[in-house]
Amino acid sequence: MLSKEEVEIVVLSLKVAFASVIFSVPLAVACAWVLARCSFPGKTLFDALVHLPLVLPPVVIGYFLLVMFGKNGWIGGALDAWFGVTFAFRWTGAALAAGVMGFPLMVRAIRLAIEAVPVRLEWAARTLGASRWRVFFTVTLPLAIPGLAVGVLLAFARSLGEFGATITFVSNIPGETQTLPLAIYNLTQSPGADAAILKLCIVSIVLSVAALAASEWVNRVARRRQSA
């Protein structure tokens, strides 16, 4: 079975993936709603900005994060000084990198789901006296839940697999920032570790399949509620 170090790697990977997804969801929902329902000058630019992590090399993103969120970065320095929150070379930094990389995938899925909700249903709610906020939380969001589940799954899987941005931003520190892909990469650098590599690969596959099954289940429950 798994050794103590291997369990630590799996636990850290899950912690990083969950944290990245949980903190991304509110922001991704907000961005998706803005992209789906609003039109404003500079929307194309905003859309491109959201998609940047999808098209740029992960190493470039990792470097940007290092520059901005490192100890001496503009944002990282301020966060450290005011709130004592540090990203550099911490698991929180790995979560930030994973969150940024998975962000466009999550926004895309949620945006499609929101666009699929008929605007006229929202109109109906407003003529019944519901404010924009109430319309969003009682009509738009509940109807977009299946798409939200897909977005969360994609981002979660992407987080579990994040490599380039993470290693650039927070390095490869066992017990702090060494997630599954980084550990596997490490093992490939030393000879005779084939069995250990295979074990971690199987763990990766199991985690991904479990995430897929969970999202499928959420999806099915949401659909059953809507069209039974």
Binding site: L121, W123, A124, R126, T127, L128, G129, A130, T138, P142
Partner: peptide
Amino acid sequence: MPAEQRGIGYVFQDGLLFPH
């Protein structure tokens, strides 16, 4: 005045009930 404050009910052609 925002739609939600007008106090005007609306019955649409296709009903537009909330499916969820």
